[in-house]
Amino acid sequence: MSAKLSVLLLVCFLSFPALAQQKTKKELKAEEAQKKQKEIEELIDAKTFVFEAQKVTPQGGRLIILNDYSYFLKFNSDTVSCDLPFFGRAFNVGYNGDGGIKFEGKPENIKVGKKSKNINFQTTVKGQNDTYDLMFRIFYNGTATLSVNSNNRAPISYDGIIRAPEEKEKKAE
């Protein structure tokens, strides 16, 4: 009987450290959040990321959910390319224009401000026909808000996500 008891005690003691090493859901969630925060910080530090718009809020308008997730702003320290929809008032823009905010240009005056819960990222880009002030508020979970001010259009803001550019996007630039 004592042999069975000693084997049972031995099995209990050997399995106890394995149980103690398992992480709780809260710890796993915190580790995942920390990993995502590090990933976002690396993208911003490298100044290479893609913003995908999911919602748009024109000045004085209602929130519009974008069903087509092909609207983007690709940011690189050398060039910014943008294809976002525009809903709002435009000044000095022709009637035969495409109606969206589409431009390519070199970013200037890049400013990054890191806070405890988000990163503020600002830059100015001169497109072919307009100058755009881009203001990002990037949260560490990967969501972001982009506000666009330009000379020829009313201010507008977009909600979406920040992600790393894919290999084919890097080669296209």
Rank of each mutant, 00 (worst) to 15 (best):
Q122K: 12
G105A: 09
G100N: 10
F91R: 05
K106H: 10
D78W: 03
N76S: 15
L84M: 05
K117Y: 10
G88H: 13
N92Q: 11
F87S: 10
F72M: 08
E108A: 14
D78A: 07
S81A: 11
K102S: 07
A90M: 13
Y69A: 12
C82D: 01
G99E: 05
K114T: 15
F121K: 01
D83H: 07
P107A: 04
P107I: 08
D83P: 00
S70V: 12
I119R: 01
Q122L: 13
T79F: 14
V112R: 02
K106R: 11
G97C: 12
F75H: 05
G99R: 07
K74E: 03
D98S: 03
E104A: 11
F91G: 01
S81T: 14
G105N: 08
F121T: 05
Y69M: 15
Y69P: 01
G100R: 12
F91S: 06
I119T: 08
K114S: 12
G99N: 14
L84C: 06
E108H: 12
K115N: 13
D98C: 05
F75K: 01
P107F: 02
K114A: 02
K74I: 13
Y95K: 14
S116E: 13
G94A: 15
I101M: 01
F91Q: 08
G105H: 01
F87W: 11
E104G: 14
N120H: 04
F103W: 00
R89N: 07
G99F: 03
F121G: 03
I101L: 11
K74P: 02
S81N: 15
C82S: 11
D78I: 01
V80Q: 00
Q122M: 09
V80K: 01
N118Q: 14
Y95T: 07
F121W: 08
E108F: 11
L73Q: 06
E104S: 13
S70N: 15
F86H: 03
V93W: 02
D83W: 08
P85V: 09
E104C: 06
E104Q: 10
K115T: 09
G99I: 04
F91A: 11
G97D: 14
F87M: 01
G100E: 04
G105R: 05
Y71K: 09
G105V: 11
L73T: 13
L84T: 02
K117R: 15
N92E: 12
G100P: 07
F103R: 00
K117T: 08
F72E: 04
F86Y: 04
Q122T: 10
F75P: 00
N67D: 15
N67C: 00
G105M: 05
T79I: 15
N109F: 13
I110G: 00
G88T: 11
K106W: 00
K115W: 05
P85L: 10
N120E: 11
C82K: 03
F87N: 05
L84H: 07
P107Q: 05
R89V: 10
N96W: 09
A90V: 15
V93A: 10
G88I: 10
N109Y: 10
A90R: 13
D68S: 09
D68M: 08
A90D: 02
V80C: 04
S116T: 13
N120Y: 14
F121Q: 03
S70M: 06
N76H: 08
K106M: 15
N109G: 12
G100D: 06
K114F: 09
E108V: 02
N76R: 15
F103T: 03
F72A: 04
E104W: 05
S116W: 04
